[in-house]
């Protein structure tokens, strides 16, 4: 990302080449936003609002546009005012869901590390009983962080693992139980139903726990992320997003569209493969990064 020109550079170059604000300038801005994966629809909306603002505020200088655009996007994300993980009261349970390979298991390792650092007693549940060596992967994370992992055999019923983990969390008076789940594409009905079963177990067995359901999204993902968020929200009460792989060159602009449409806050971001590579989401920092102003 260091070698790549951020949006701002492009906007600057662009704006310098314009003497006045005209349609062509708006079109070029559109293109820049689309390249950040913000999506055609959201981009159009944002640009239309920008157009109106230019008219109402009688803006004539192209330079002002950039400021306004950045403001717009920050406001969109800020309306949700990124909230912290809901783990203040004990016991609490975090369920981590998402499509294949986005970074669920890794994020769980990072979250466990973070919470343990806050002095909390953390337990992990190996709810991915499907993917090859998924249980071993979580176990290694557990060992790294120094927390226990409740697991069954590969191929066993995920709901049964979660059931056992809840009993263990109660018996051992854990503060936070974090449950891994298998990656599943949102268009697979049977796998989404399986997730529904897991939620039922949680509702029934752990009503006293504060619930946090995190949907993990890969920043490299394009427009499909909207569909992912929509469908997962239908089966689960998604309380926050984790946006991973922001250490690459992808900007993750899709969360702007998701915020606009679905009102789910981004809570955490992943910026690498190590335990410490997890950060709290901050709207203005995110938009600045989107504009190449890290």
């Amino acid at each position: 990302s260091k070698t790549k020109k951020g949006i701002t550079d492009k906007v600057d170059i662009l704006i310098k080449s314009y003497q006045k604000i005209d349609e062509e300038l708006f079109e070029e801005l559109e293109e820049i936003l689309i390249t950040a994966d913000i999506g055609v629809n959201t981009t159009m909306e944002v640009i239309d609002e920008l157009r109106d603002a230019v008219k109402v505020q009688k803006i004539t200088q192209p330079e002002k546009i950039k400021e306004l655009l950045q403001e717009k996007l920050t406001t969109t994300l800020n309306e949700l005012s990124s909230s912290d993980l809901n783990t203040e009261s004990s016991p609490s349970i975090i369920l981590v869901v998402g499509v294949n390979g986005v970074g669920k298991t890794t994020s769980i390792g990072k979250i466990a590390y973070k919470l343990k650092g806050q002095g909390k007693k953390v337990l992990l549940a190996a709810g991915d009983t499907f993917r090859a060596a998924a249980i071993d992967q979580l176990k290694i994370w557990g060992d790294r962080v120094g927390v226990d992992v409740i697991k069954h055999q590969e191929g066993s019923d995920p709901a049964a693992v979660i059931y056992d983990a809840i009993q263990a969390a109660k018996a051992r008076k854990m503060d936070v139980l974090i449950c891994d789940t298998a990656g599943r594409l949102h268009n697979k009905k049977n796998l989404m139903n399986e997730l529904g079963k897991v939620f039922k177990v949680v509702e029934r067995e752990f009503p006293q726990a504060v619930k946090e359901v995190l949907l993990v999204l890969d920043a490299t993902t394009g427009q499909n992320a909207i569909q992912q968020a929509k469908t997962f929200k239908e089966v689960a009460n998604i309380s926050g997003l984790v946006l991973t792989k922001l250490d690459g060159t992808a900007k993750g602009g899709i969360v702007i569209a998701i915020s606009k449409e679905l009102n789910i806050p981004v809570k955490l971001i992943g910026v690498g493969e190590k335990m410490e590579d997890l950060q709290e989401f901050n709207a203005s920092v995110f938009v600045k990064a989107l504009f190449g102003e890290e």
Binding site: K4, D37, V99, G101, D218, T220, G222, Q223, T249, K251
Partner: peptide, 12 residues
């Protein structure tokens, strides 16, 4: 390559 990749696919 993941078929869900967005605009970044060209860079990759």
């Amino acid at each position: 390559i993941d078929s869900m990749t967005g605009q970044d696919a060209v860079n990759v």
